[in-house]
Simulated scan of single mutants.
Amino acid sequence: MIYVTGDRLQAHHVRAAAFVMRWRGLDPAQVYDYLGRVADELDRLRRELTTAHTEAERIRQALRQWQSRHRNCRHGDPGESNGRWPR
């Protein structure tokens, strides 16, 4: 069996996993089919995580730009002018 220490488990680690054959062991075809599904799921989750990080960074940048554009905007206190918003 391949053990990767210190690194995140990658799909190719799962696909490359090898097991010692035993007389009363599991069906190798089932094990490797399942490992293939696990590796596919790891790939999918990694892509989703990358997409989420990219989107989060895009939103952070957009927020910074918005804050920069509106830094000098001043609004009155909502409690001013008889509890009405300034016009």
Rank of each mutant, 00 (worst) to 15 (best):
M1S: 06
M1I: 06
M1N: 06
I2C: 01
I2K: 01
Y3N: 07
Y3K: 12
Y3M: 04
V4M: 03
V4L: 03
V4Y: 03
T5W: 06
T5C: 01
T5I: 09
G6W: 02
D7S: 11
D7K: 14
D7F: 04
R8W: 00
R8Y: 01
L9K: 00
Q10N: 01
Q10Y: 00
A11L: 00
H12W: 08
H12C: 02
H12N: 06
H13R: 04
V14C: 01
V14D: 00
A17V: 03
A18P: 01
A18F: 02
A18V: 05
F19G: 01
V20Y: 04
M21I: 10
M21G: 05
W23T: 08
W23C: 04
W23L: 08
W23Y: 07
W23V: 08
R24W: 12
R24I: 10
R24T: 09
G25N: 11
G25K: 12
G25D: 12
D27L: 02
D27S: 05
P28W: 01
P28H: 04
P28T: 04
P28F: 00
P28N: 02
A29M: 09
A29I: 09
A29L: 11
Q30G: 05
Q30I: 05
Q30N: 07
Q30T: 06
Q30S: 07
Y32F: 07
Y32M: 09
Y32D: 02
D33Q: 06
D33H: 04
D33A: 05
L35C: 06
R37W: 03
R37S: 08
A39H: 06
D40S: 09
D40I: 02
D40V: 01
L42Q: 02
L42R: 00
D43T: 04
L45K: 07
L45A: 02
L45H: 05
L45Y: 03
L45Q: 12
R46M: 00
R46C: 01
R47D: 10
R47A: 10
R47I: 06
R47F: 05
R47P: 03
R47Q: 12
R47L: 09
E48Y: 07
E48R: 13
L49W: 02
L49F: 01
T50F: 00
T50S: 08
T50A: 11
T51R: 15
A52Q: 15
A52S: 13
E55W: 10
A56N: 15
E57R: 11
R58M: 11
I59Q: 15
I59A: 13
R60S: 15
R60W: 12
Q61R: 11
Q61F: 05
Q61N: 11
L63M: 12
L63A: 10
R64E: 14
W66I: 15
W66T: 13
Q67Y: 08
S68C: 03
S68Y: 02
R69Y: 10
R69I: 05
H70A: 07
H70T: 13
R71C: 03
N72S: 13
N72C: 08
C73S: 13
R74P: 00
R74G: 04
R74A: 08
H75Y: 14
H75S: 11
G76C: 09
G76F: 05
G76N: 08
G76S: 10
G76Y: 06
G76D: 12
G76V: 07
D77K: 07
D77G: 03
P78N: 15
P78K: 14
G79L: 14
G79Y: 12
E80T: 05
S81D: 13
N82R: 14
G83R: 15
G83I: 13
G83K: 14
W85K: 09
P86M: 14
P86Q: 15
P86A: 15
R87W: 14
